[in-house]
Design a protein around this nucleic acid. Structure first.
Lengths: 104, 104
DNA sequence: CTAGGTCATATCAGATATGATATAAAAATG
DNA sequence: CATTTTTATATCATATCTGATATGACCTAG
């Protein structure tokens, strides 16, 4: 099960433990997931204000489905792709650094 | 040719253009390279104060050669691996965010 | 209701990143 | 020096990430 699915369950009331408990991640793995999640959420926010997933996909020479996965915290998406997408929405290094620094 | 090699050449006096000119990168690709480079340099600094490449490699379940590449900006190394390595040296999210924010 | 647009999910073949290993080069140590 | 430790480079099989495509789900407007 991936994070996106977990979130959907939680929204429907299936409250369960933290991501790290649930998925049995090591502390470092858990932090990586947090970073990806923070970037995902921020990307989605930024992108929605500016363009469709298909438009963003074209900008980064990717595909709409891949952007959808990026925005939904699918763990097949690398941090690199997330950052490329953020940059394509006009995010600065400062923006990206801040998102990571504050990924709780 | 990779960045590491380029740097070695430059140290020996083969001054050439900026990374983006030389490698003909798009602006976004160029920024990604800058991020990787900044993480690399910071990682090397941190690691050297604390342990050998082999020791760090063990911590992150990788190999000494891979850590060497991570520290030398080899472009086969993902941002994920760089961050995992940073975390293993005790870097915080704030540390990592700051490095990225200030990758010039 | 339905047509169009947008987003989510599934699958896949190809590309890239990976750890392992061997070994060379370099640096530190004595 | 010579030895040992550490770091760099080369090669490789495998795992993971990739974009593409097809299609389903979900809207909203007509």
């Amino acid at each position: 099960m991936d994070l996106a699915k977990k979130e959907r369950l939680e929204r429907k009331g299936w409250k369960i433990g933290s991501a790290s408990e649930f998925l049995e991640l090591s502390p470092e793995e858990s932090i990586l997931v947090q970073i990806k999640l923070a970037l995902s959420l921020n990307l989605k926010e930024r992108r929605k204000r500016l363009m469709t997933q298909a438009e963003l996909a074209e900008k980064i020479h990717s595909s709409q489905p891949r952007v959808a996965k990026a925005e939904n915290g699918d763990d097949s998406v690398s941090i690199e792709l997330l950052i490329r997408a953020m940059l394509a929405t006009g995010a600065t290094l400062k923006d990206i650094g801040q998102v990571i620094a504050q990924a709780e």
